[in-house]
Write a protein that binds this DNA or RNA. Structure first.
Lengths: 240, 240
DNA sequence: TTGACTTAGTGTCAATTAAAAAATAATTTT
DNA sequence: AAAATTATTTTTTAATTGACACTAAGTCAA
């Protein structure tokens, strides 16, 4: 890919020698269950953060984009691909990494905790889900990265139909509302929430209902991605 | 800043040698006048882009963050600091740079074309403002970078009071409306535009009016940043 | 099987906000 | 002083949002 004339390679070598910089990705992997929003973390083994947890990340390889690196990290740890992922922000403070200059690109992704068996399948004994509200500190600047990604997630949740990516393929309206309330930290009016959703026309009933609940079962819905894209909706708002 | 134990430096050296990657910043510097939205460009002297224009950018130095690098680039070229700037996105395609692996962090910034004499002050004979609508191709992947930044600018223009940063400190309501119409590519109703703005209460009249116009002079306003922040408005919307 | 319990699901009205549209006032030029 | 140009204000109407309470459906246990 690079021109291989001597003086040009020299220029690039000069850059590399003079501006020694490593580039990494860090993934804020959000999951959700009825107890709240969670992030997938791993114990850090690098001094001085031996007792801290850290986000999942890695150095960006020479033959991949940062997006590919982020997907690689996610796949290696969870066995999941085809996952929603969004680049958020670069963090490049000079002292953010104890070993030297490491510039990191942060991503967040949304995965369904229930219905995925990756916790068993992969070499993941050290991975753990931690409730967002219980995370007070992390290794490196990962707490700041997580908070930044959480803010971005909240903003996107208000404007785009991504909440479904944290739920099973089929869900009840109550589950969806609870997700919004938990992630955004607000209370929503049940009737207004349903009116807004039915007006958007992006949810389709499956025809089935909940089973094995000791009360009136709720109808099940799924998100119709195709119809959403056809109708060319440029985002929406859940109005706080 | 880095721990200086031998084996640790070895690790970092390995990274540097194995994953040789340069990091740069590219700035999409937006300016505005009555003919439309413009971007500040410079001729590219690197093969195979000798006849193309490119964005302003540079390698990130070892002793600065990417934000600082972007501000440095802007200051060096225009003599301006204290400029609104926003990080947008990382571009890391493998073939984006002909000399090898260069990952770039893109920024956009908003400056006032009129009332700044930087074009005279600095070594800027080769810099040129180019109308956004007339830019069909640029060196490297800079066209894609510009388009991405333009989309981000438009989104922010709808949600935050940043339009003023493209206008002189004092301006008429008509000027402001025209700016919105030109940047967003929409027509706005004059009466509704004014009502919306007056309801936001972020513009203050200077008491003065236009001079040297051959018709009724319009009143001049300025944006009251202090009051905006005090009133703690979390963005607004110009509703398309 | 009936009654108590639990969660699902539904509609109206008031208030606010957004949209559309027309007339008047200020200033310069002729 | 009359005409032309542009600035500014107000009213009416439609759409959206927010507040609010009861009935329906199904389970479980007596």
């Amino acid at each position: 890919m690079a021109k291989t004339e001597g003086n040009i390679n020299t220029w690039l070598d000069q850059i590399h020698n003079k501006y020694k910089t490593a580039v990494s990705v860090d993934c804020v992997i959000f999951g959700y269950d009825e107890t709240g929003l969670k992030v997938l973390l791993i114990p850090c083994d690098m001094p001085p953060f031996e007792n801290k947890l850290s986000l999942l990340g890695d150095i960006v390889h020479p033959n991949e984009t940062t997006d590919q690196a982020a997907h690689r990290v996610l796949y290696k740890r969870t066995g999941l691909d085809d996952i929603y992922m969004e680049q958020v922000q670069v963090f490049s403070d000079l002292n953010r990494h104890p070993l030297g200059r490491v510039i990191t690109v942060s991503y967040y992704s949304l995965i369904k905790i229930n219905g995925n068996s990756f916790m068993e399948l992969k070499d993941n004994h050290s991975l753990q889900w931690k409730n967002v509200s219980e995370i007070n500190e992390l290794a490196f600047d990962h707490k700041i990265i997580m908070d930044t990604c959480l803010e971005r997630l909240r903003k996107n949740l208000r404007e785009h139909p991504i909440g479904f990516k944290l739920l099973p393929p089929v869900f009840t309206l109550q589950q969806l509302q609870t997700l919004y309330e938990m992630v955004l930290g607000v209370e929503l009016d049940k009737r207004n929430f349903r009116r807004k959703l039915s007006h958007l026309q992006i949810l389709k009933p499956t025809g089935d209902s909940q089973k094995d609940v000791s009360h009136r079962p709720a109808k099940l819905y799924y998100f119709d991605q195709m119809e959403y894209e056809e109708r060319n909706i440029n985002g929406f708002s859940f109005g706080l």
